[in-house]
Nucleic acid binder design. Structure first.
Lengths: 167, 167
DNA sequence: CACCGATCGTTCGGCTCCGAACCGTAAGGA
DNA sequence: TCCTTACGGTTCGGAGCCGAACGATCGGTG
């Protein structure tokens, strides 16, 4: 197999004698490496001009798709912890893109909504974001993309257990 | 296709009329979602007891595989920026796992090495880490794992251009 | 030999990330 | 009605993440 990254060749050289599962290693390391590189790419190419981070963008997008949400649902939907959601919503609130309000029926709950500015921003950005998603995936055939997404979902299920996610 | 996450069904409901590439969207969103979930899983299950983050662990591992490295090479190898590498190395230095020294030949360069404690720590942890890598991938066949890794490398190459990576 | 442009690592500022703990609110049982 | 347990969101502390800028060092040129 001559598809390996140079780093992967070195790993085989140095650790090849050890009883390790290099196939599993390749999956996990390349999953993480490619995900990090794509996040950085999307942030620098599409999001940076609006000074939005990947996660801020995902929050706007989740609210755009699902409408107003309770903060705990928003955290789950975006795939971040509740303290992180608090911080990111605070950032976006400061930018004027979202607002918080207390739920009437249950004083513990906070409802997060898009503002008009937030709605305009995500409606403007998402087609550009999706075009760049196309740019980074179009070297794979449609069938390969579907199979890749299927395997990635299976990886997610392997660690998420029954945790529902709505991002 | 009934393999979609509930979130993905909702996206089709709400944005289905827009001229978007849902296949590309599925690849990128599931890549990110699965990578984040696996990082969290590995951190909580294997790394937390030693209070190591994913990136600290990768730094130790890269030094283990490649030996002493210049700080700029280490940043590239781990896949992080140089300011981030400075911070993570500072953290690990404080924990006694790595040390820094100036290069003799070029006063600008910093050489980063594992300490004896660092070497013991990564040698102890990596088999456990790899066993968990196996746990999260073994639902896929060997052939599927290899194909998945190949596609993930192709995604990485799509955004990395010619940037060499040695993580 | 001096100066200029480039490189390297760090600092700064701002943002993300999360576990533990805290405070306010809700629900259930005695 | 009061007490206890649980839930929700936030705060705290610590760590990671990066672009821009800075200071130290190097190499090349005149």
């Amino acid at each position: 197999m001559d598809d390996l990254l140079p780093a992967e060749r070195k790993v085989l050289d140095v650790l090849g004698e050890m009883p390790l599962d290099f196939r599993a290693m390749a999956v996990v390391s390349n999953l993480f490496r490619s995900s990090t590189a794509i996040r950085r790419h999307m942030e620098s190419k599409i999001l940076a001009r609006d000074r939005l981070s990947w996660t801020s963008f995902v929050v706007l997008w989740v609210l755009w798709v699902w409408g107003d949400m309770e903060a705990r649902e928003l955290a789950a939907g975006v795939g971040i912890s509740r303290p992180t959601a608090t911080g990111v919503v605070t950032t976006l609130e400061g930018r004027g893109f979202v607002r918080r309000r207390k739920a009437v029926a249950d004083g513990r709950l906070v409802i997060v909504s898009l503002t008009a500015a937030g709605r305009r921003k995500i409606a403007e950005l998402f087609p550009l974001f999706n075009a760049e998603e196309v740019a980074v995936t179009s070297h794979l055939s449609a069938a390969d993309q579907e199979m890749l997404a299927t395997w990635l979902r299976s990886m997610l299920r392997a660690v998420d257990g029954g945790r529902p996610s709505r991002g």
